[in-house]
């Protein structure tokens, strides 16, 4: 087994894929935390399904699919904001409408793809071998930008996530920070969709945060724990999938769900 792992990780693409996965596992819970706390987890799903439509559009137009995913994902969160204003008392409708539009558009556009049809499939569930050097650099660049912006605005993001009204009265630019948060979510989803898979990314946004919430002792501690959990899920899932020849994204998600269930059971016993 060790020999298999050593052999696999002697390949350049495997090392790059692991490094990208490690960075994605920092940004997903970093953005997932305020999204979960604001009870907007569905936005991850809406953005990821729209990212798939972007992949299809990219393949049709001959543009890099990751760039297509970023563009459509950003358009999706802008659409969510517009729908939230129109249905201010039923804001959950917004994410569902945009997600439905994303699925519909993906289904229609996929019928026009003449070459590289397997790319759609690889974006749905993630693919390591299909990732190009350009996509790895793009994903790394976007991830570093998300980490930097999240760090610079971490106090504002906390204040607005905890109590939007008080933040508004304190003079914080609530609308701008909320928009920034949506934008970061879109970028995170699109950046991660190549490796983790568009259908899997929202679980990486939510499951590490859910696990961390069970044992977190403060907001800061919960954010740090959620990043640690995401790293454990991804790296262990990546190794297990390599050894057992499974799909990495699915393995990562299933390990995450298993750890969450174990923590829930242990916490239930402690009570």
């Amino acid at each position: 087994m060790i020999d298999t792992l050593i052999e696999m990780f002697s390949y350049d693409f495997m090392q790059k894929a692991l490094l990208t996965l490690i960075i994605i596992s920092v940004i997903a819970p970093l953005i997932g935390m305020p999204i979960v706390m604001k009870r907007l987890s569905a936005i991850g799903d809406a953005a990821s399904h729209s990212a798939l439509a972007g992949v299809a559009a990219g393949l049709i137009l001959g543009v890099n699919p990751v760039l297509g995913a970023v563009t459509f994902s950003v358009l999706a969160v802008l659409g969510i904001e517009a729908f939230r204003k129109a249905f201010s008392k039923y804001s959950e409708i917004a994410a569902v409408v945009v997600m439905s539009a994303g699925i519909g558009l993906t289904a229609v556009l996929s019928g026009f793809i003449t070459s590289g049809a397997s790319s759609i499939n690889s974006f749905m569930f993630g693919s390591i071998v299909a990732v190009s050097d350009f996509e790895i650099m793009l994903t790394m660049g976007l991830s570093l930008a998300v980490i930097a912006v999240s760090w610079i605005f971490h106090r504002e993001i906390f204040a607005i996530t905890f109590d939007e009204e008080a933040a508004k009265i304190a003079g914080l630019p609530v609308k701008s920070i909320n928009f920034l948060l949506m934008l970061l979510t879109a970028i995170t989803v699109a950046a991660a969709s190549r490796i983790v898979g568009a259908l899997m990314i929202s679980s990486l946004l939510v499951i590490p945060v859910a696990a961390a919430m069970l044992i977190g002792k403060s907001y800061k501690n919960t954010v740090v724990l959620s990043v640690i959990f995401a790293e454990i899920f991804s790296v262990s899932g990546f190794f297990v999938s390599t050894v057992l020849n499974l799909r990495p994204s699915g393995t990562i998600v299933l390990i995450g769900v298993a750890v969450l269930l174990i923590l829930m059971i242990c916490r239930g016993r402690d009570r």
Binding site: F158, F162, D163, A166, A167, A170, K217, S218, Y219
Partner: peptide, 24 residues
């Protein structure tokens, strides 16, 4: 400003008193 926050407060939010006060 102090609102009726206690009545509508999400008790699952993992923030300490210190973090909440500093956010002001």
């Amino acid at each position: 400003y102090v609102s009726q926050k206690v009545a509508s407060f999400n008790t699952g939010f993992p923030a300490t008193v210190r973090e909440v006060v500093l956010s002001g």
